[in-house]
Design a protein around this nucleic acid. Structure first.
Lengths: 215, 215
DNA sequence: GCAAATTAATGATTTATTCAAG
DNA sequence: CTTGAATAAATCATTAATTTGC
C-alpha cells in the first residue's frame, strides 16, 4: 500500500482501461510523440513513464498475435486429425505402410509438404500453412514474412510520415518526456488522442475514428 | 563529399577501430552510461549518436554469434557426412531402406534425432545439436535457451549493478546525451573506457584488461 | 578507367522469446 | 499465471564493395 518504489510499474485500472481503448481503436506501435502524449495523459492517473507505455503496447500486440496463433493452430490440428480419421476410414489398407512416417508426429511438420531441393542460401522452405503457427518450426521464413507484411500496413508506414526517419524507438522519446514527467503536470495541449471521451467503452466507431487518423 | 545528411550513420575509420577495440576488450551490451561515455568520446571523430553505438554493439554481437553458428554448423555437417559415409561402408546392405528418409535432405533436420511424443504445450523438441545452428528450424527452443544462458554471464549481470534497474535500453540514454551532443564537447571527465591509448591495436592485454573491470 | 548493375555489409526496426515480479 | 521488462533473433533498407560491359 505504501508508495515505496516497487521494481516495476503496474497500471492503475483507469490507465489500463485507457490503454486498452487506444489499442482497440487501432494503435499498435505508437510513435514517440504518441507515446509522449499518452504518457502525459495517463500520468494524471498515477505514476507512469514513456517506456511503460512503449512496453505495454509491444507486449499487448505480441500477446494478441500469440493468442491468435494458438487458436488457429488448435483449429488446424483439429482439422488435420479429422482429415486423418477420414483417410483412415477410406484407405485403411494403407495404414501400416504410412505409419513408418506419420506415427506420433502430431507436430512433425517437416514431413508435410516439404519442398526438397535448394541447398544453401534459399530460405523459401516451409510453405505449409501449419508452419505459420506455434509448435515447432513456426518462425523460419516465408510464412512469417507474409504475416509481417500484413502487420506493416497497420502502423509503420503512418509513422514514417509522422516521425521523420526514426519512428518510435526509445532514443527519440526521452528527451521530450524523461525527468520532467514526475506527475503533477496536467496535459498542457489538447490531445488528439483524447478527444474528451475516454471512458466510453464501445460504440459504433463512427464518431471516434478520426481520433487515429489525425496522428 | 559534402556532409549532407545521409539517412544513416556510417562510422569513420577511427570510430570503427575504437568500437572494435572495445568489443575485443569484452564489451558486448554496454550500459546506458557506458554508451554515453563511448558516444561522447567518439563524437570527437565525427558525428555520432548514442543509438548508433547501441545498435553497433547489438549488431556486432549478433553477427558474431551468427558467424560462429555458421561455422559450427558447417563442421557438424561435415562430421555427419563423414559418419554417414562410414556407416554406408559398413552397413551398405541397408542403403536402399534408409534412402526413403534421408535423400535430398541436406537441411532436413527434422529427421535427425527427433524425440517423439509431447503433444501441445511442451516446446522441448529438437534436442539434436544440429538444430542449434542455421539451416531450417534452428531457433525453436532448448538449443537457443542454452545458448542464451551462456551469453548472459558475459555482461547483463554486471550491468544490473551498474544501472539500478533499467539497464541499457534507449529510454535512459537520451536524456544525458541527446540534443546536447552536437560535437564540440571534448570529453569532460576522464573516462575509464579510454585510458589514453586508443590507437594501440593489439598487445598482450596485460596492462589494459582492468579497463573493463572498473565499469 | 568508369558508371550501371549486382552483391555483400551493415545500420536500423520490428518481432519473438525469455526473465522474473507480483 | 499473468504481465512488465529485457534480450535475442529476424528482417528491412541503405550504403559500400564488387563485378561487368563498354
Amino acid at each position: 500500500m505504501s508508495p515505496t518504489a516497487s521494481s516495476r510499474w503496474s497500471p492503475t485500472t483507469e490507465q489500463l482501461m485507457i490503454l486498452e481503448e487506444l489499442y482497440r481503436s487501432g494503435i499498435r506501435t505508437p510513435s514517440a510523440s504518441q507515446i509522449q502524449q499518452i504518457t502525459t495523459h495517463l500520468s494524471f492517473y498515477g505514476r507512469i513513464e514513456g517506456k511503460n507505455v512503449f512496453y505495454w503496447f509491444q507486449n499487448h500486440k505480441a500477446r494478441d498475435r500469440q493468442k491468435l496463433r494458438r487458436k488457429l493452430n488448435k483449429q488446424m490440428q483439429l482439422q488435420q486429425q479429422q482429415q486423418q480419421q477420414q483417410q483412415l476410414q477410406v484407405h485403411h489398407c494403407q495404414i501400416n505402410h504410412d505409419n513408418n512416417v506419420m506415427i506420433n508426429n502430431n507436430h512433425f511438420v517437416g514431413t508435410f509438404g516439404y519442398p526438397f531441393g535448394s541447398i544453401t542460401q534459399d530460405i523459401s522452405f516451409f510453405n505449409s500453412p501449419s508452419l505459420l503457427f506455434e509448435g515447432v518450426a513456426a518462425n523460419t521464413s516465408e510464412g512469417r514474412v507474409n504475416c509481417k507484411r500484413n502487420c506493416y500496413n497497420q502502423q509503420s508506414l503512418v509513422e514514417k510520415n509522422d516521425n521523420i526517419a526514426l519512428s518510435n524507438y526509445g532514443w527519440k522519446l526521452v528527451d521530450v518526456n524523461h525527468e520532467t514527467s514526475s506527475c503533477c503536470t496536467r496535459p498542457l495541449k489538447t490531445l488528439d488522442l483524447f478527444p474528451l471521451t475516454t471512458t466510453r467503452i464501445k460504440e459504433d466507431c463512427t464518431t471516434s475514428t478520426k481520433t487515429q487518423n489525425s496522428m
